[in-house]
Design a protein around this nucleic acid. Structure first.
Lengths: 243, 243
DNA sequence: ATTGGATCAATTGTGCACAATTTTAGCGGA
DNA sequence: TCCGCTAAAATTGTGCACAATTGATCCAAT
């Protein structure tokens, strides 16, 4: 199997979020699974680590990310900043053709929502953000947006909140209107507000799913330096015990 | 020598832009220079490649980037988008302390400019952008901003236009005023305009330095698939001939 | 003289064996 | 029962030797 194939396969798997956070990804084990040498796996693992899709610790190996709530906030805040900038930029530079493409996309979202085609709606909903990034025509921006969207996907998959946490269709249309009329400030604000809403829809579930953190409860009664640090460690131990 | 040290050393060297674009970075050669094994160098090289500080081609090795004008535009456009988003975000979230820190920074810039301390002024000028990214408190954003600022540094170093292409002090103050007064839209626009100005100050030099592209002239009389692709290749050949 | 192909040198990619580090299991004592 | 220590097992890191690919040089043929 090719190295890029292995990387793509593992990426899909990680983005799907099927493994619990902190799961160990042993080199020898993966080498057996894919039927390739361990070195091949090593390279892919380090690459995934640099892409922030897994966490690699020196002399300890690779682990799936344990998405503590603070990471949710960090990623969504980063998306608000970056995609807010994208929206503002597009409001100034969008061509008539691009406006029409966007209009068609939002219309398809509405249509899918109306006809109850939930699967299509989910896909279109996710593609909307990527489409905007692509419309900048800037490969650097596309790359950065792809990374953030990927991390978001992992987060929502982990909190298995696929049902309600998707993008609201009306909000996409609001963003579109601001873009189409060239209202730079409004477009940026709308995008930022939209992403903030998604985060709030996601967060409540996180607390439920995270279970009893125990150490965090103790930490609440002490000075607050950085509570989430220990949550991660506990999740790792639990996951490793399963393996 | 440690692996991280080698990475840091090469990073500094690349960002300084001392080597011409397209210079080959042979593994065996670097291994001899640093006095370490080739594998160590390989790892660092691939890491640098993933960070877009060099270009690694399969079965051919690593090369310093050949900054064609299109890359200049791409990087600066990306900075306008990202840092525009950062400025807009900060206008909403800046604390009084942060406002004072920024004010002090801009004052120091003015002071350095007035007293003719050019070295200090250049440093402060560059740090202004990084300071804003850091003030988001978001590691993801800091990381992305660092990458773009780094690539910008390489570009200005390559075009050896260090003299006039630095940030205008007045523009920084304009951005600061918008941030301090919480004018989100104005802050984003000011940052975007500021970066656009830097690019225009830089570009004329680029065209002079690029020399006669030759293949591009031929390409102009054919169908336009992706002209910049061949410019890069020519720069590589020229650089390799020197080595 | 130029183009085409083939061989050869140089450089990168890969698998394997060994070294270093971490983790775990076992054991004895407080 | 719990803690500390030691040793062994497992896992990752590294250097080396060899394979594969690329680029260049040379020679021949048109």
């Amino acid at each position: 199997m090719d190295e890029d194939q292995i990387h793509a396969t593992l990426s899909r798997m990680l983005l799907a979020g099927r493994l619990p956070g902190g799961t160990k990804l042993g080199e020898h084990r993966l080498a057996d699974i894919f039927g390739v040498s361990r070195e091949r796996i090593r390279k892919v693992l380090h690459r995934l680590g640099h892409e922030r899709l897994i966490e690699v610790v020196k002399n300890r190996g690779a682990f799936t990310l344990a998405p503590d709530p603070s990471e949710v906030h960090v990623v969504f805040e980063a998306r608000r900043i970056l995609e807010g900038g994208i929206a503002a930029h597009l409001a100034d530079t969008l061509s008539p053709d691009q406006v029409e493409t966007l209009r068609a996309h939002v219309d398809r979202e509405s249509e899918a929502l109306k006809t109850g085609d939930r699967r299509t709606w989910l896909r279109l909903s996710a593609e909307f953000h990527f489409l905007l990034a692509a419309m900048t025509g800037n490969p650097v921006i596309v790359q950065q947006a792809r990374e953030l969207v990927g991390r978001t996907t992992m987060l929502v998959a982990f909190y298995e909140n696929n049902a309600g946490a998707q993008c609201g269709c009306a909000e996409h249309r609001t963003i579109f209107r601001a873009l189409a009329s060239g209202e730079r400030a409004r477009a940026g604000k709308a995008m930022s507000a939209h992403l903030a809403l998604i985060e709030t829809r996601l967060r409540p579930l996180a607390c439920v799913d995270a279970g009893p953190p125990l150490e965090d409860v103790i930490a609440e009664f002490m000075e607050p330096p950085s509570p989430p640090a220990r949550t991660r460690r506990k999740a790792q131990m639990k996951a490793e015990a399963q393996a």
